[in-house]
Design a protein around this nucleic acid. Sequence first.
DNA 1: TGACAATGAGCATATATCTGCTCATAATCA
DNA 2: TGATTATGAGCAGATATATGCTCATTGTCA
Lengths: 121, 121
Amino acid sequence: MRRKPGGLVPLEIAICTCAANLLVRGTREFHGYEIAKRLSDVADHKLLTAYGTLYRALGRLESMGLLESRWEDPEVPARENRPGRRLYSLTAAGESALDEARKAEAATSRRRVRRRKPATA
Amino acid sequence: MRRKPGGLVPLEIAICTCAANLLVRGTREFHGYEIAKRLSDVADHKLLTAYGTLYRALGRLESMGLLESRWEDPEVPARENRPGRRLYSLTAAGESALDEARKAEAATSRRRVRRRKPATA
DNA sequence: TGACAATGAGCATATATCTGCTCATAATCA
DNA sequence: TGATTATGAGCAGATATATGCTCATTGTCA
């Protein structure tokens, strides 16, 4: 895909959007597996097929400073008999990057629409 | 398989044997995935095909008091980027149960040998 | 505008553990 | 000894995360 410097690729935008949506609903932290399922639920634009792709995107977003992460309290997974989760949260930088990316994306799609040929009805 | 009361089934014997071997080599604790790989390595008697089977056997052994377990320090898996491990160790009861089971197994196989018909060479 | 190169996407697989369902087998009892 | 039945074994899949390899796309530069 090769990133436009400072920009975000579609999957990264989708992740940040998901994070922002959770945030306004009062959930600050989320984990990769959860996001993966949410993204695969909204299957209209198949943004995600393999988990590996998602976790790498999460890693990139964290190294860019748009997400931050911590491991959940180990007593929780022990009590619930499941693997531990890495909990991510959107940073302030992440929120503004998302705004920028959305604006850029909207501009691009407008241009695309203008270029599109009319349907030969 | 239906267990003879107080006895152990072959897979359980294999697990305890593996644990006892590790113990004499100075390793007191082990985890399920490790045992699974060791058992699948010694493939002469295919004791294990699916992981689920092993983890259930580990659970039985623990509920019988022959093994005890704890979750490893969560900082270790976090540092090594892998899932946390449940660390098992053989109890004293486990060691003596293993002895008993081995004796019983040996007796059974002697009886089986005695019953075997000579090869029609 | 076309070639090149950087890098994200997809696929496979590893690391660990656990549960539900069904089938086979062995222990037990009549 | 034969029928019953308890329970272990096998199979499938869920829960979470991570890495290596290859291919395709996209931005950039000439």
